[in-house]
Design a protein around this nucleic acid. Sequence first.
RNA 1: GUGGUUGUAGCUCAGCUGGUUAGAGCGCCUGAUUGUGGUUCAGGAGGUCGCCGGUUCGAACCCGGUCUUCCACCCCA
Length: 456
Amino acid sequence: MAQKPSIPKGTRDFSPAEVAKRNHIISNIREQFEKFGFQPIETPSFENSDTLMGKYGEEGDRLIFKILNSGDFLQKANEQAYSERDSTKLTSSISEKALRYDLTVPFARYVVQHRNEIEFPFKRYQIQPVWRADRPQKGRFREFFQCDADVVGSDSLWQEVEFVQLYDAVFTALGLNGVTIKINNRKVLSGFAEVIGESDKLIDFTVALDKLDKIGEDGVKKEMQEKGISSEAIEKIQKVFGLKGTFSEKIEVLKDILEPSEVGRKGIEELEFINSAIEELKLNTATLDLDVTLARGLNYYTGAIFEVAAPKGVAMGSIGGGGRYDDLTGIFGMSGVSGVGISFGLDRIYLVLEELDLFPETVSGNIKALFINFGEQESLYCLRAIKELRSAGVAAELYPDEAKMKKQMNHANKREIPFVILAGAEEKESKKFTLKNMKSGEQASVSLQELKNRLV
RNA sequence: GUGGUUGUAGCUCAGCUGGUUAGAGCGCCUGAUUGUGGUUCAGGAGGUCGCCGGUUCGAACCCGGUCUUCCACCCCA
């Protein structure tokens, strides 16, 4: 080996076993998506830069992977920007394409572009990789999969109710019990800012509030003050910091705080609607919890905000998120279309399932039986049986070379193939097969019919 | 983008204040066993000590840079 090859930072190779486990998660998610009436679409891995740039805030722009123009890109480079070392300006003159950063913005682009072919409300799901030029950490990669389901063209709050149930359905199907679906509402956050008279500092305010469980009450207040929010203002929403109890108990406290704010009252109304519907319909294994500190997410959320936390005791960032955005397609010139959607973080769900040992053994994707190769004549005899087994739905194969028995048995053992079939001259003569169970070591002489019966 | 951390055999890791031919366990290969794997025993292969440069008589070890890993911040799935 001259020089070890490698892959870029934050990317990964997947072994057969890993792919099988990932497929197990994806197929569960897909199955639930379809059960809930979502239809799949796919979009290109890269988009025109102006489709993506400016949609995720300044931080987002930095994290978008840009694709260099083909050909002699420096010929057309903006000379002034180059000589001034103005990267932002230079970038637009040497790169016009970028890898997609999430699935929501490309979806909005898709909706606008295909508006005349789409029947609204349109429910689509999309399972594809996205790329972010972020620094990798645990559960954070530069290439990862998102599994999104969104509805556009419906203002109905029943959609939010459906999404809560969808989260519950997927995590229940995966055997991941005890996840918490945290919900908040942007209108409640706006209400807070309004009540304290700092509506123009809404973003700073919510970003600080979001860190409550991380840096504590004092830390949040300190950060708010640093952003220019007065302590008198913060005092007005003091009760927010100590919010406890059930969903309804929290709502009662919020009603009190947000009484003066119309938008705040609207937010509470929406939360109550969703909660009472869920209480009526019941969730299988998940819990719906009101978390007013939840402010994550993209600048475009206008109503509900969702985030899913792994079961207690698992150290992992959120494994899903989503929300309502009233005018997502507006950025592409099509206003008045409301959308709401959620996302599943495949790679993080994988890590959580792995940590809790929740992958069923059956996901291996392995063959059921290996035929030992005894030579040309015997192989043909085996291949005839293999053909029949396969059409009966049994995955089986013949060891390709006439190697030593020990080597062939060892191969079956290493691949954890549950059955080995020995069919040499003797078996061929008597039209039998020797079936060996690799786990128990038992073996039996059986007919082809019996072989099929035992392996199907 | 900021600060820190990690890198020695396929894997997990030892390697004294810099000092001859860099070690272990597991794995791998061969044989004991020419139609029986997982156990045992005997033997064997495998390393430019992440990469580049510097200090030194001498560097896996010290210094600088770079890449990578993981962590915190920012932000986020």
